[in-house]
Nucleic acid binder design. Sequence first.
DNA 1: TTCAAGTTTCTCGATATCGAGAATCTCGAT
DNA 2: ATCGAGATTCTCGATATCGAGAAACTTGAA
Lengths: 165, 165
Amino acid sequence: MEDEVDRLVAAWRRERPDLDVEPLEVLSRVSRLARHLDRARRLAFSEHQLEPWEFDVLTSLRRAGAPYQLSPGQLLTQTLVTSGTMTNRIDRLTKKGLVERLPDPSDRRGVLVRLTPEGRDRADEALAGLLAQERAILAQLSRAQRGDLAALLRRLTAPFDNIPG
Amino acid sequence: MEDEVDRLVAAWRRERPDLDVEPLEVLSRVSRLARHLDRARRLAFSEHQLEPWEFDVLTSLRRAGAPYQLSPGQLLTQTLVTSGTMTNRIDRLTKKGLVERLPDPSDRRGVLVRLTPEGRDRADEALAGLLAQERAILAQLSRAQRGDLAALLRRLTAPFDNIPG
DNA sequence: TTCAAGTTTCTCGATATCGAGAATCTCGAT
DNA sequence: ATCGAGATTCTCGATATCGAGAAACTTGAA
């Protein structure tokens, strides 16, 4: 089955036969698929009155385990946003009663962000919904293919995640 | 080599052993890689005084071939943004002299967006830079692996690209 | 002890995006 | 001809993000 990237690559080969556009076969698909997933997630979360950015923060705290707290800096590496954005997100989640800010006892510059009980419940509910949706999307692939795909992607993400990026 | 998604999945298995989080192995990597690519692209384009969103629009027109014009609607399906966003993008690119708006001779509701000669040059320059950067990122994989990865991703993108999404 | 460099979080203005609705036009059915 | 449903683009207010710099604190070395 053809996709939009097939058409895009064919167009480039016609217009710029001097260039090797092979990299787009992989990376344009990654970018476009991510945008499609964003839209799908927005829809899935709206049933739980959650925005994708709220889900990202709440689940980062949730999977940290009890007492469900992380520093803003740790949240940055998990969510890949800037520090100004994270401050703003924490403010808004605090107003909604889903997280609270505590002083870090071991570093007076620092802050700990902790999930409230309601925040924890909301994260758990939304996660189950997200997994159901993702399973449906991945039904296009066999279990073995999903494993191969994950392994190939890991080789691309690991350099970004491990060197100071 | 481990990546952030390996840690994320391990954390979920510890905190929610009742859930099957296998879908995250693929789709969380897609989303995170896309964000890393966004950042890298922003950097690569800054040498050419271009924003990623400008690149997306200009290259969509460029690869359409002479006379380098598409309707706003066609640009939507290529860039996956909303119509309000596209109107705004065309306005700003027009002010910069990189595109111009023409009435569609065959449909008076419609508009055609055409690349100016300068817009075309800017698109061509930035594309070469982007491909160089993407080749470096993909050097982690063999040619055969890149082919496999592209084919697996196509199976996921095709449903989004072909059914009315 | 003191200082400089580094870390951590926050501030705030600029900017891009979304989304719902309005305005205009097309096209098929009657 | 005319009407209504659908298509196409644009408007505009609300909102989220970025990014550069400020403020507060820590750490190691002199």
